[in-house]
Amino acid sequence: MNSPLIQLQDLTFDHPGQPVLKGVDFALHPGERVALLGGNGAGKSTLLQLMVGLYRPGRGRISAFGRERQNENDFREVRARAGLLFQDADDQLFCPTVLEDVVFGPLNLGHSEGEARSIALRVLETLGLSRHAGRVTHKLSGGEKRMVALATVLAMEPEVLLMDEPTTGLDEQAEQRLLEHLEALPQAMLFVSHDRRLVERLATRAVLLTDGVLVEGIMHRHPHVHTHSHLHVHAAGLDAGHEHDEQTPRHRHSHEEI
């Protein structure tokens, strides 16, 4: 097995007066897409932010890209190689225009203005956002903001993507688009999500954060044969192309072990 990109050993973290993480062990390997699950307030976002050094752990070791990371200087390099997508895109997009926001990262990495601009335009193009380049960020819709936030992270050409609830607040269409782009990305990923569809389509492995420790989740599918009625909305009086009989079918389903 190849060496892990990011490894956490016996990590602890306290919020004032309240332990959040009580000894977390975790490793992210190249090519993996790991779903980080857990209840509200379990410390999932905190864990992501610990990995890039936005908080300091109480105890334990964080290694990233082959080295142990301890101080701000160490983590600066980690942040360049592991892109973190925040839960609220308004936190991430702070520049006046979309293009300026996307070039911000590359410029910080030392690219010249011309290079940064061409990187940014390329990333925007691959995400289908080219026509938004000149737009003012606070006038974008929620879905557009999330995609632009993803672009700002991808423009840094990270080797690992850390994402905090990437699909919350998106409508079905926007979510679908985001999913397609994420599936096409080669990076190893660790993502927090409550969205079952996202976990099902994207994750190769799942871990569960409960009571401050991380346990390996077991993902399994079983064939699921069921017939049921489902909610179906169409305008009253319009011909929807089907008949409504009095009796709606009862929900039946059976799990079959194979």
């Binding site: 936005l54 600066r76 942040r79 609220d88 300026e100 911000f104 203005e113 601009r117 000149g134």
Partner: peptide
């Protein structure tokens, strides 16, 4: 709190006390 989150997001993108303007 928001300002702290914004600063953290900026740090994640390698912010080191410099902001840029691209003017057309």
């Amino acid at each position: 709190e928001r300002s702290q989150r914004v600063l953290r997001a900026m740090k994640c993108r390698g912010f080191h006390d410099r902001l840029y303007l691209l003017s057309e």
